[in-house]
Amino acid sequence: MIIAPFSMGDSPVHRLDPRVRVVASTAFAVAVALTRAPGPATLAIAAGCALLVIARLAPGPLLLRFARLNVFLALLAVLLAAAAPGDALWALGPVTFTETGARMALLIALKANAIVAALTALLATTDASELGHALWRLRVPPKLTYLFLFTVRYLDVLHREFGRLRAAIAARAFHVRCDRHTLRTLGYLVGMLLVRAFDRSERVHEAMLCRGFSGKFPVMAVYRLGGGDAVFGLVWSVIVVAILVWR
């Protein structure tokens, strides 16, 4: 299982310091979430798309990611346009779609796409372990950081364990039906996965004790800010401030 499909690339974005990317994407997401007008939202989506172009991500998976997001947004837009009060734009039987509702839906769609574009370009291009170290350096509470790093490390192990269990039940002719047997089997599958995960966590802890673990994690990686980080930081700050001021 590949956890971060966009992280294995080389582009000016991939070369940015992970800490800069975490801070930049967080600031951007907050600023965009606060906007209330289509103008700044358009600026935001332009900035997000520009980053995606610079990051040179594979177009196939990228389109799929945005397609999923927009299917969800389309459902939301329909509900919102029908529920918001205001001048009727269009009536379908008893349901009226209002102009205010349509505007709000459009704004939400712009904002959501802008944030996902920026997060994909900045954070999805970071390797999970780099992201963990960046969080650590940014003084995110160590417990959260290590929860994240352990999750990344063991997701694949658990995924394979799940695969083995599923293969084992499939090998004995199990297939999903709509009955109690299916529910019970799936329940056992999830339960067994939890039990095994728990056992593994104990073994991991024992192995850590054997190598002198005493509750503190030593970190070796060193990051240095470079010229690219400075240029990006400056340009990005201007965009974020512009979005915040314009709103």
Partner: peptide
């Protein structure tokens, strides 16, 4: 898989000596 818990090889091998 019980023993290698760090994301990269270097960090994992370094874990013991750093401790």
């Amino acid at each position: 898989d019980d023993q290698l818990f760090c994301p990269t090889v270097e960090e994992d091998v370094a874990f013991g000596p750093l401790n």
